[in-house]
Every structure is written in structure tokens, then in C-alpha cells.
């Protein structure tokens, strides 16, 4: 679907040439959600702009659907670009146009008659869930709504590929989730291939099928998301993986947990030196009337023993649950009920 062969990008700056991407080889398959993760300055924004040739490669070949875009004339390139939608971190909507007019913009560029434009825009408004907001100006919308307009606009000319340039980086976590869900929905519904760049691993984890890790202009690791998560090979990948597995304070905040596990009882146990791990673990799982699973666990080795923090989810009778908590705290474990 999208193939980079030995692509190199060098910028000429006042202080001499700067290499943004080096000998890049990459393949994105049809219908997948491909994520590219990297820190700022890694070259990911250059990379995504090479796909629709907003940036021209210094060397190498870029193919989309078997057509080498960097060999096309300006006119042919414009036609090809209509088949590649793009959304942006700062949405890049025209503030002088209403929601409806913004979504109609690419259709207007393509010279579609007014009546057809209106029909298509109505479809798109429904698809992204902006009903009733047709005549609003972008300045009156929230960030999430603006990105929905951006998505509708990008989909207007029925592209085969959608490029997402840090599309959720300017949004709060909740809105990010709703936009990511929308992306998955259109990926499934329309069979759209999505390429996204981000610096947030949870975005990759939530929606991507495959991921490439970009560092200093080179892809240092690439593969299926679960493989990269389970066995990160590079140091930088491990850092990214830690973003999602470990929270800054070493704990998962309660509210997030409650959202992630809408049912069952949740409890947290913290214990350190002087507590027998064996005893704690056996009491955790030995109760026949509770079905217990570990949601999250963290062990930090210390000189004698370890500092441990475990969050578990339990299903069963409330009285049994309370009794069970009590039996574990007897061992010197700090027990906290997150949801009873």
C-alpha cells in the first residue's frame, strides 16, 4: 500500500545540511493502522509528510498504491493527494468557514456540484457525530469536536489512506480516547489504511496493528504492537513501553482503573520487607468463594526482600470480599479497597 525504499531526507539549513531521515525502508499494508512513535526531533513529522509529498525526499522512492509519487508532475500529484486524507495536531480548520463549509472544502476544490457536496457533507457529519453543529464556526467548538471536523474533512473525498499527524496530542485523555475510537471505527467501516505518528505509547497500544519506533531519523524497531510490547528490543522502545505500563508515581490512578474495569471489586495491596510474599500470594488466591485476577503489579527489588504493589480484581459476595481483605491485612499488608 505504502512503501518507502531507501528514503533519505536532508534539510539545507544556515548551519549546513541536517539529516532528518536516513535510508528509511518501510511498508504499510492495506487496511492496517500503522503507528510511528518517536520523540520530538526524531523525524516522524517529516516522515508522514513524505507520504503525501508535502516534503520531498532527497533520495529514494515513495510509493502509494504502486505509484511513485515523487516522480509525478504537479498536476498528477494533486490528484493523488486527493486520495490521501490528513488530520493535524492543531486541526488546521479554516476559521472563516462553518463546520459544514470546512467539510465541503475538499469537495469544492474538486469541483463537485453544490447539491452533491451537501449530500456528502450530511453523510460525513453523521459519520463523525457532529449532528446539529453544521452551522457552527470552529472557534465555538471544543478540541475534540474540531478534530472530528478535521476527520470528516479528510474523509470527504473518499481517500484510501488517512495520515494522522499527532492527531490527539492537543487533546485531553478522555477526548483522545473518543477520537481514537472514531479512528478505529472508520478503519473498520471504510477499510481505510491509517498511518499515525505520535509520541504517546498508549495511542499505539490502543489502536495500532503494527508500530515502528523512530529514533534520530532511523527506524530502530518495527513489528506487531503486541510483540513490540512484550519484547521490546531497543532501550528507547523500552522507555516508550514503560510509558503505558508504569505510571509516574508507580501506581495506576483509581479513576482510570475504574474506567478500565467497569465491573468487579477492586483492591490494592502494598507490602514490603518483613512480609512473607509467599503467604500473601497464597491468601490472595486461596479463597474458594472469590475469583481473583491481578490487574496490575509492581515489584521493586530492595536489599532484603521487595517493595510490592498489587492491584487485583475480585468477583464474589461482598461479605466474603471484606473478610478476605481483612485476612490479608493481618499479614502486615496495607490493603486499600478501590471499589467494593
Amino acid at each position: 500500500m505504502i512503501r518507502f525504499t531507501d528514503v533519505k531526507k536532508v534539510y539545507q539549513t544556515g548551519n549546513g545540511p541536517v539529516q532528518a531521515l536516513a535510508d528509511l525502508n518501510l511498508e504499510v499494508r492495506r487496511g492496517e493502522i500503522f503507528g510511528i512513535i518517536g520523540y520530538s526531533g526524531a523525524g516522524k513529522s517529516t516522515l508522514i509528510r513524505l507520504i503525501n509529498l508535502l516534503e520531498k525526499p532527497t533520495e529514494g522512492r515513495i510509493e502509494v498504491e504502486g505509484r511513485a509519487l515523487n516522480t509525478l508532475s504537479e498536476k498528477e500529484l494533486r490528484l493523488e493527494r486527493k486520495k490521501i486524507g490528513m488530520i493535524f495536531q492543531h486541526f488546521n480548520l479554516l476559521w472563516s468557514r462553518t463546520v459544514e463549509e470546512n467539510i465541503a472544502f475538499p469537495l469544492e476544490l474538486a469541483g463537485l456540484p453544490r447539491k452533491k457536496r451537501k449530500e456528502r457533507v450530511a453523510e460525513l457529519i453523521r459519520l463523525v457525530g457532529l449532528n446539529g453543529r453544521e452551522h457552527t464556526y470552529p472557534s465555538q467548538l471544543s478540541g475534540g469536536q474540531k478534530q472530528r471536523v478535521g476527520i470528516a474533512r479528510a474523509l470527504a473525498s473518499r481517500p484510501q489512506v488517512l495520515l494522522c499527524d499527532e492527531a490527539t496530542s492537543a487533546l485531553d485523555p478522555k477526548t483522545t480516547d473518543s477520537i481514537l475510537n472514531l479512528l478505529v471505527e472508520i478503519n473498520r467501516k471504510l477499510g481505510l489504511t491509517i498511518v499515525l505518528i505520535t509520541h504517546e505509547m498508549h495511542v499505539i497500544k490502543k489502536i495500532c496493528t503494527r508500530v515502528a519506533v523512530l529514533d534520530k531519523g532511523m527506524i530502530v524497531e518495527e513489528g506487531k504492537v503486541e510483540d513490540v510490547f512484550n519484547e521490546p528490543k531497543q532501550l528507547i522502545t523500552r522507555e516508550f513501553v514503560r510509558q503505558v505500563t508504569q505510571h509516574p508515581s508507580g501506581e495506576i490512578p483509581g479513576e482510570e482503573l475504574i474506567n478500565a474495569y467497569p465491573d468487579g471489586r477492586l483492591a490494592k495491596f502494598v507490602f514490603g520487607r518483613g512480609v512473607s510474599q509467599q503467604q500473601v500470594i497464597s491468601r490472595l488466591f486461596s479463597n474458594q468463594r472469590l475469583s481473583v485476577t491481578i490487574v496490575s503489579g509492581m515489584f521493586e527489588p530492595e536489599e532484603n526482600g521487595a517493595q510490592a504493589s498489587i492491584i487485583v480484581r475480585a468477583e464474589g459476595d461482598p461479605d466474603v470480599f471484606r473478610e478476605w481483605i481483612g485476612s490479608i491485612s493481618e499479614l502486615g499488608v496495607k490493603a486499600e479497597v478501590i471499589r467494593s
Binding site: N52, L54, R78, L79, M86, N92, E108, L109, A110
Partner: peptide, 21 residues
């Protein structure tokens, strides 16, 4: 906003369309 011009280019706008629209 440069981003808006970039978005228009990404949508395949001609330079004249970018000026007028």
C-alpha cells in the same frame, strides 16, 4: 496559519485555489 495552507495543499488544492479560498 501555515498549517491551514499545508492542509489545503494536502487536499490537492492548486495555488490559485489557495489564494482565493
Amino acid at each position: 496559519d501555515k498549517g491551514v495552507i499545508e492542509a489545503a495543499q494536502a487536499m490537492g488544492a492548486t495555488r490559485a485555489q489557495i489564494v482565493w479560498k
